[in-house]
């Protein structure tokens, strides 16, 4: 199979999508990586991921986005995938206050299992359901400030702010990584991150499997 241009990259950043079940994690992922919104998106069982290569701060970054099951009892498995993640998108549903209230639980989860330097972004999804909004932007905004998270509201359905959300978190990750690599004696950012395998400087992969639409269904 011929190599695709997207397999050449400067950095590989691993980012996890977390949040309650049904908030739209999988659709954010498919919107970002394939520009698709799946009508029949099923619940995620275990973990899945997709990648997209894009330009971040002038560098080619391969973003590897991990999608996880939302239900609590799968957390033992899904949290294994926090390891090595440089960024986390913590998603709630702006129409469901419960999912917003659970954000604090997810934060704790991250702090327990993820790298302490992980960049966390709070995402209020489903803004297209304007008439059903139940979590005020300001509330989420101030919560995010309090917790030191970046924050954005998105609609995977309308493709609103999805790109921006990912761009923002990837840029933040990049800034942290490049800062580290400057402050370090080593030239390679790779060595500065705990989990070396997540950042492959100038690495290239031969895994070029095609990414089809959402599912076989």
């Amino acid at each position: 199979m011929a190599r695709r241009p997207e397999e050449e990259y400067d950095y590989l950043f691993k980012v996890v999508l977390i949040g309650d079940s049904g908030v739209g994690k999988s659709n954010l992922l498919s919107r970002f990586t394939r520009n698709e919104f799946c009508l029949e998106s099923k619940s995620t069982i275990g973990v899945e991921f997709a990648t997209r290569t894009l330009q971040v701060e002038g560098r080619t970054v391969k973003a590897q986005i991990w999608d996880t099951a939302g239900q609590e009892r799968y957390r033992a498995i899904t949290s294994a995938y926090y390891r090595g993640a440089l960024g986390a998108l913590l998603v709630y549903d702006v129409t469901k206050p419960t999912t917003f209230e659970n954000v604090s639980r997810w934060l704790k989860e991250l702090r327990d299992h993820a790298d302490s330097n992980i960049v966390i972004m709070l995402i209020g999804n489903k803004t297209d359901l304007k008439h059903l909004r139940a979590v005020a932007t300001e509330d989420a905004q101030s919560y995010a400030e309090k917790e030191g998270l970046s924050f954005i509201e998105t609609s995977a359905l309308e493709a609103l702010n999805v790109e921006k959300a990912f761009q923002t978190i990837l840029s933040e990750v990049y800034r942290i990584i490049s800062k580290k690599s400057i402050s370090s004696d080593q030239a390679s950012a790779n060595a500065n991150v705990k989990e070396g395998q997540t950042i492959d400087v100038a690495a290239s992969s031969e895994s070029n499997t095609k990414k089809p639409c959402c599912s076989s269904s």
Partner: peptide, 10 residues
């Protein structure tokens, strides 16, 4: 009540 309802609507 109405709000938590919205998942369906979504």
């Amino acid at each position: 009540n109405a709000n938590t309802e919205s998942h369906q609507s979504d």
